[in-house]
Amino acid sequence: MSRVPSPPPPAEMSSGPVAESWCYTQIKVVKFSYMWTINNFSFCREEMGEVIKSSTFSSGANDKLKWCLRVNPKGLDEESKDYLSLYLLLVSCPKSEVRAKFKFSILNAKGEETKAMESQRAYRFVQGKDWGFKKFIRRDFLLDEANGLLPDDKLTLFCEVSVVQDSVNISGQNTMNMVKVPECRLADELGGLWENSRFTDCCLCVAGQEFQAHKAILAARSPVFSAMFEHEMEESKKNRVEINDVEPEVFKEMMCFIYTGKAPNLDKMADDLLAAADKYALERLKVMCEDALCSNLSVENAAEILILADLHSADQLKTQAVDFINYHASDVLETSGWKSMVVSHPHLVAEAYRSLASAQCPFLGPPRKRLKQS
């Protein structure tokens, strides 16, 4: 649940008159999402009104509101027999009622949201009550392989729920002597030191190019640089560091992050930047690179990204790559990247197969709970 924001200063709310007192009302909304995959969808019983329910879910471990999704594969009634019906059901509720908006969509073979439908307002739910769409999607369109909505005969539904909580009022009075504290510009100011090479005390040599930097900042941000300058190493004695395995453009992006906490060109060089972040123990930059690479996972590059993640101990990226390969196994196994990995990294192939087997055979063990970014 997000923290209630402070109200904007009255002088910034309007260029008009300023009242002596004010009130700011925040209506709290808890948002969460749920993904439900139905394997072997074409084998569902086709009687009209037949119901399939998901397991229950909530916004978190401490949330007492429990929900589930309900599907009628062949419609709810005679009117909707040519459609799939989809509903959000409130299973248990400690209150007399709650209000919530919802959005349903289908994830296609690429994991993209399609055929989205959402409620136009927050509906009133009581325990045992459901709301949804009797005519969510035509069955003939859903079952047509050309539309790519049932890869490997799996129907994957994605649901986003927004639950309306209580409202909170914050009130106060205006004073004539309003003090406005300026925003912190530390990142910009440190970035200026790097860009202008002011007050530098060490030189970093990268592929024949020299960059002036500040030992204190490098040591504070990177345990690797800290070790170089702290001990009686040649880098500490000469205040000069030779860097041979990072390209200059990648190095500059890494230094921008060290000084400012930002990497504006990360998406263009996420793979190389991940390697640099791993070498210099820049954990936050490493996770930022993992996130960017996750966003660009595809059938063509899944094997290469899995190898990269394994090489640099990028655990979150590795998990996402394995899950992606499992979901698109029939396509990924035909790529040149996968065939190369079979020869060069057989242990990763074995890991992917083990994960695929456990996903398809849940009876082999208890269900695993899916539970950071600093």
Results as ranks from 00 to 15, higher is better:
141 F>R: 09
142 L>E: 04
287 V>Y: 07
317 L>Y: 00
82 D>C: 13
63 D>W: 01
298 S>Q: 11
110 K>I: 12
188 D>G: 03
305 I>D: 14
368 R>F: 11
182 P>F: 03
342 V>H: 07
204 L>G: 13
101 K>M: 14
201 D>H: 00
95 K>M: 12
312 H>T: 03
248 P>M: 07
129 K>F: 13
181 V>H: 04
231 H>R: 09
239 N>L: 04
329 A>C: 12
140 D>C: 01
170 I>S: 02
254 M>H: 00
86 L>Y: 08
45 R>D: 13
64 K>I: 03
138 R>D: 09
155 L>I: 09
299 V>I: 12
251 F>D: 00
187 A>F: 09
68 C>G: 11
358 S>I: 01
349 V>Y: 12
24 Y>I: 10
201 D>Y: 01
12 E>C: 05
152 D>Y: 08
348 L>A: 10
15 S>K: 11
13 M>A: 05
15 S>H: 07
229 F>W: 15
39 N>F: 05
315 D>T: 12
212 Q>C: 15
69 L>T: 12
167 S>I: 03
138 R>V: 12
210 E>V: 02
129 K>G: 13
249 E>K: 04
100 A>N: 14
143 L>C: 02
220 A>S: 12
372 K>F: 09
273 L>Q: 04
190 L>Q: 12
167 S>A: 04
195 E>W: 07
344 S>Q: 14
6 S>Q: 10
183 E>D: 03
129 K>P: 12
374 S>K: 13
166 D>R: 07
55 S>M: 10
144 D>P: 02
14 S>T: 10
103 K>F: 11
203 C>M: 14
289 C>R: 00
230 E>S: 11
132 G>E: 00
168 V>G: 10
309 A>C: 07
370 R>W: 01
200 T>M: 10
45 R>S: 05
238 K>W: 08
236 S>W: 02
225 F>P: 00
280 Y>Q: 01
105 S>P: 01
139 R>K: 07
230 E>C: 14
118 E>K: 08
323 D>F: 13
62 N>W: 09
80 S>G: 07
289 C>V: 12
232 E>K: 05
63 D>E: 13
158 F>T: 12
93 C>T: 06
314 A>C: 14
69 L>K: 03
343 V>H: 11
226 S>A: 15
312 H>F: 05
366 P>R: 14
33 S>K: 12
288 M>H: 06
157 L>W: 14
211 F>E: 15
252 K>G: 07
48 M>K: 02
11 A>V: 06
107 L>W: 07
189 E>R: 09
292 A>V: 12
33 S>W: 15
153 D>R: 07
142 L>R: 08
269 M>S: 03
313 S>I: 04
181 V>Q: 06
296 N>T: 11
12 E>A: 04
255 M>C: 07
184 C>H: 01
168 V>P: 10
302 A>G: 11
22 W>A: 05
341 M>V: 05
342 V>L: 08
175 T>F: 06
143 L>Y: 09
205 C>T: 15
345 H>N: 11
230 E>H: 15
373 Q>R: 05
104 F>S: 00
160 E>V: 06
59 S>H: 15
355 S>C: 05
332 V>W: 01
116 A>H: 15
343 V>R: 11
193 L>P: 02
33 S>R: 12
151 P>T: 08
26 Q>N: 09
44 C>V: 12
31 K>P: 10
164 V>I: 07
281 A>G: 04
142 L>A: 12
23 C>E: 02
348 L>W: 00
364 L>I: 14
168 V>S: 08
197 S>A: 13
146 A>P: 11
200 T>I: 06
321 A>V: 03
81 K>E: 10
260 T>M: 08
163 V>K: 14
145 E>Q: 15
201 D>R: 00
151 P>M: 11
160 E>N: 04
117 M>D: 12
339 K>T: 13
210 E>I: 15
65 L>N: 13
110 K>T: 03
122 A>G: 11
115 K>M: 04
14 S>P: 11
251 F>W: 12
167 S>P: 01
323 D>G: 07
356 L>W: 09
109 A>M: 08
308 L>T: 09
70 R>C: 12
325 I>R: 00
166 D>C: 09
202 C>S: 15
42 S>I: 03
154 K>N: 07
181 V>P: 06
62 N>Q: 08
210 E>L: 12
168 V>T: 05
223 P>W: 13
353 Y>F: 09
178 M>K: 01
162 S>H: 13
119 S>N: 00
224 V>M: 10
176 M>S: 03
89 L>W: 03
302 A>M: 09
277 A>M: 01
168 V>R: 01
3 R>W: 08
39 N>P: 05
352 A>M: 09
198 R>M: 14
93 C>V: 05
289 C>H: 00
103 K>P: 00
316 Q>T: 13
159 C>P: 00
265 N>L: 05
319 T>R: 09
223 P>G: 15
326 N>F: 13
48 M>V: 01
27 I>A: 08
275 A>W: 04
198 R>Y: 15
21 S>W: 14
124 R>E: 12
208 G>P: 15
292 A>D: 03
188 D>A: 02
311 L>P: 01
247 E>M: 07
314 A>M: 13
292 A>Y: 05
215 K>H: 13
353 Y>H: 11
90 L>E: 01
223 P>Y: 12
335 T>E: 13
258 I>K: 00
212 Q>F: 15
181 V>F: 01
371 L>A: 13
295 S>C: 09
34 Y>K: 13
164 V>D: 09
164 V>W: 05
102 F>L: 12
138 R>E: 11
65 L>C: 07
25 T>I: 02
308 L>V: 02
261 G>C: 04
166 D>I: 09
353 Y>Q: 00
104 F>V: 15
337 G>Q: 06
213 A>S: 05
27 I>Q: 13
347 H>P: 03
352 A>C: 12
260 T>N: 09
37 T>K: 02
374 S>T: 14
19 A>V: 06
75 G>W: 06
82 D>N: 05
174 N>H: 01
317 L>H: 00
78 E>V: 09
344 S>I: 08
157 L>T: 09
300 E>L: 12
18 V>F: 03
205 C>L: 10
157 L>G: 00
371 L>H: 13
315 D>R: 10
3 R>G: 02
37 T>N: 06
36 W>H: 13
167 S>E: 08
76 L>M: 10
89 L>A: 15
211 F>I: 01
311 L>Q: 05
254 M>F: 04
229 F>Q: 11
103 K>Y: 15
72 N>S: 04
270 A>H: 03
329 A>L: 06
356 L>I: 02
256 C>L: 10
231 H>L: 14
19 A>Q: 08
11 A>P: 06
369 K>H: 03
59 S>M: 01
121 R>M: 09
143 L>T: 11
159 C>L: 13
10 P>Y: 10
255 M>E: 08
132 G>H: 00
350 A>E: 10
143 L>A: 01
36 W>F: 02
292 A>G: 03
200 T>A: 12
123 Y>N: 01
5 P>R: 04
313 S>Q: 13
47 E>V: 08
317 L>K: 00
89 L>C: 11
114 T>C: 12
8 P>S: 08
259 Y>S: 01
313 S>L: 07
77 D>T: 07
141 F>G: 05
352 A>V: 04
364 L>T: 14
110 K>A: 13
288 M>L: 01
29 V>I: 04
283 E>K: 04
218 L>W: 14
283 E>V: 03
328 H>Y: 07
324 F>Q: 01
205 C>I: 13
286 K>G: 03
178 M>I: 07
138 R>I: 13
224 V>D: 15
132 G>V: 02
309 A>Q: 00
73 P>I: 12
304 E>K: 06
102 F>E: 00
102 F>G: 00
366 P>N: 15
132 G>A: 00
151 P>Y: 04
121 R>I: 15
174 N>Y: 04
180 K>P: 08
156 T>L: 12
135 K>D: 03
353 Y>D: 00
368 R>G: 07
